[in-house]
């Protein structure tokens, strides 16, 4: 197979958990392609394998069969070269480090990554990000010295996003990062994430269970269904960028939301209710 240097490619990925009667097929022969610079959301009911898919790309798990390549490198190399920025569901900040300390820590570990990155085929040179500028952009410029427990949940999650951007990763993998936030906070952070993404032009794979969040953020929405976990539809979101608050109330957005909801419902109805 030819690994594309400008795409994340998941080909025929199979992943099962457990054995015998308890075996669950988390991913049944899944194919997915993400172009460089795209914002792709993965949406689906719980248990559809969307987090598993993300973790395969992140190199946190390996597929039973099939291939995963991240801009031409396998996930293991990609991690070793710090090409992947991971944002988990909870902020996962170190409580003893300040906001700035948390954001700069990734650049202090695995220092050989930069040299390795230059040797990889999909390498695109980027200037190292200035953590202070990054934090200022995301609205935390006056909180550099504060500790995580002094921040609200939304502010903590913004620190986690800044931390992922700070290593100038080629792809950010976000696993339902806003699911624990209330609606106002969520919408505010979505706008900030979009602004940052438009400036940094990173590739983002974003797992969510919110239809409107998927439409507002993405170039492409991947709809998955459960048991076995599979991709049901891939929907291109053809809305102009930059997307600002005003646009989000437009009829086009609602059309896309309805389309995705319809897909989710048929996927849910088609799949066996019990395994």
């Amino acid at each position: 197979m030819t690994a594309s240097p400008d795409q994340i490619v998941v080909r025929d990925a199979l992943k099962t958990y457990g054995t015998g009667a308890a075996e669950v097929t988390a991913l049944a022969h899944v194919d997915l392609t993400v172009d460089r610079g795209q914002f792709v959301s993965i949406i689906g009911p719980s248990g559809c394998g969307k987090s598993t898919l993300l973790r395969l790309v992140a190199g946190l798990e390996t597929a039973d069969s099939g291939d995963v390549t991240v801009f031409g490198a396998d996930p293991d190399q990609a991690c070793a070269a710090k090409m992947i920025g991971f944002v988990p569901q909870v902020p996962a900040l170190l409580p003893w480090l300040s906001v700035e300390g948390n954001v700069t820590l990734p650049s202090k570990v695995n220092r050989r990554a930069d040299a390795l990155r230059r040797t990889l085929p999909g390498h695109v040179h980027r200037e190292p990000a200035d953590p202070r500028a990054l934090l200022t952009k995301i609205g935390l410029g006056d909180s550099l010295a504060r500790l995580p427990h002094q921040l609200s949940g939304g502010m903590q999650q913004r620190v986690a996003i800044a931390r992922a951007f700070a290593i100038q990763a080629d792809v950010l993998l976000m696993d339902e990062p806003f699911s624990a936030l209330d609606e106002f906070t969520r919408e505010a952070i979505q706008v900030q994430l979009l602004e940052l993404w438009e400036q940094m032009r990173t590739t983002v794979v974003f797992v969510t269970h919110s239809v409107s969040e998927a439409v507002v953020l993405s170039d492409k929405v991947v709809v998955m269904s459960a048991r076995p976990g599979r991709i049901d539809a891939v929907i291109d979101i053809d809305l102009p960028r930059p997307r600002r608050q005003g646009l989000l109330e437009s009829a086009a957005v609602h059309d896309y939301e309805d389309l995705i909801r319809g897909r989710l419902q048929t996927a849910w109805a088609a799949g066996p209710a019990t395994r």
């Binding site: 992140a58 190199g59 946190l60 991690c79 070793a80 710090k82 992947i84 920025g85 991971f86 988990p88 569901q89 909870v90 996962a92 900040l93 170190l94 820590l105 990734p106 202090k108 570990v109 695995n110 990554a113 931390r163 290593i167 993998l173």
Partner: peptide
């Protein structure tokens, strides 16, 4: 916490770095 370990696993922080820094 596991999420913190996952973040630093994707950065391929060495075992020594995980020990001393986390």
């Amino acid at each position: 916490s596991p999420p913190i370990l996952q973040v630093f696993a994707t950065l391929r922080a060495s075992r020594f770095e995980v020990l001393t820094r986390l």
